[in-house]
Design a protein around this nucleic acid. Sequence first.
DNA 1: CTCAGAGGTAGACACCTGTCTACCCAACAG
DNA 2: CTGTTGGGTAGACAGGTGTCTACCTCTGAG
Lengths: 266, 266
Amino acid sequence: MSLSKSVLAQGKRLLMEAALKLHANTRSLNALSLRELAREAGLNPNTFYRHFRDFDDLGLAIIEEMSREIRQPLRALRRRAAESVTPPGAPLPAWDQDAGLNLARAMAANRATVRLFFDYVAGNPNAFILGIRELHGASPVLRSALRQVMADFARDMAEDVRQLQLVPDLNPEELYAIAETISREMFQLSMDYIEQPDQRQAICQQAERMITALTMGSAVLHGHGPVLLPALAGTDGAVGPAPSDGPVSSDQDAERKREQTRPRLA
Amino acid sequence: MSLSKSVLAQGKRLLMEAALKLHANTRSLNALSLRELAREAGLNPNTFYRHFRDFDDLGLAIIEEMSREIRQPLRALRRRAAESVTPPGAPLPAWDQDAGLNLARAMAANRATVRLFFDYVAGNPNAFILGIRELHGASPVLRSALRQVMADFARDMAEDVRQLQLVPDLNPEELYAIAETISREMFQLSMDYIEQPDQRQAICQQAERMITALTMGSAVLHGHGPVLLPALAGTDGAVGPAPSDGPVSSDQDAERKREQTRPRLA
DNA sequence: CTCAGAGGTAGACACCTGTCTACCCAACAG
DNA sequence: CTGTTGGGTAGACAGGTGTCTACCTCTGAG
């Protein structure tokens, strides 16, 4: 919500805050008028030109400040969440050594991060509204700036997940792809979180499930199934693994059929 | 792109098409001006009032038309994709009977649907641009209308997936949640697909992987692991299941540790 | 002390905007 | 033939808009 109390000129900060406020209430950035903005900020319209070339320029300044303010806290809370399960000094067993412990760590970090993230969203709604709105907004300049911000978030997340070993080994591209998807989804959901205060708990749970399904699904697809399966049994309120009451096709069967029917990569 | 050639008055259609065009190029809907729109449509500004009360009204009309035009084709192509693997009449074995065949069907349907969807997006970019932009846009009216559209899409998808048995049994809520996530992601990605023609193949693949990981992850979490695991081995270019070179903790061990460390549900 | 420059203001300009009232015309029901 | 009505137009009005030039006032370096 409030922009950093850095060394920005007072008028500049006033303008940025006015923009954030007006934007959240009713308009998209490019639908704001100079004079309206100046009025809200209590300044002369011309003052705008002292600080910004145009509205894209203003938007970029806001986005840059936002990104600086949000990235570090997000990383910090991810670490905090992971370390609340396994203290920083303690040795981490590899996933194949103790899948159960690692899964517990991952789930705890997942849950805590989701909650802290949404708390953060609820505390700074206008920043997220602007981010989400302009990510798909009319200005190509702001769109690409925000795309970059999202990419940074995803890179942070992937790096943290790797360092904290919150997921079994995945190749970097796959890990990054998952992180991208998750951060896109989290931002998307944060809009709902802001707008529907009565649904907040449900949104949290949905986010957690989505993240778990996505990461674990990817891990299983990359060959970690045998390690994960025993630890996953009964997780997430699911009924335990039902005994298959019919013959299960063998590996080779499956492989043969798949080869017959799978369309080629274009 | 082009709106249906239905029985709408000519002027009304002209206005809607002009709005779509101007919107896609530079602006969000609420940043359009009446006169600008009329100019683009080649009509007198006042004609707008003959057909719409305000811009929200116009937006709703466009969205309604879009939704009508897009839902059916989407369902049709999902069916078509599934049936390209297993012809409609043929009996479908249950997932526990022949996971390999079902997985092949699901993957094929997934791939084909993703491709057809993005083809559709590429053919009607302006419709999707408007949908995505206004989904997070400034007008609460359009936002909620589009939220409804997205919910309809998700419901369609969940129902089709259930009918076509593209995923092992899941409870309806979970299935719907997955469908919601997938359709959100697909819409989000369609913006990238439109804007970055050189990345299209990569976006397709990313979407496929995301969907596979999400559905299979959810299935595994809901106890379908034992059925899926043999069929999944080696899928998706992953290295086969590596032999775990250490002792794997037993079910009971995992359960015990998780209980110790998992934070309670708030 | 001075003086340059950053931050802020004032007024004016031409232009564009939403909306009102009034008029027009074709189709068509009776 | 008449009257109504849906679709489209014309002109005008008051007000808002971006941007220009000119002017003011601090503050801090030399």
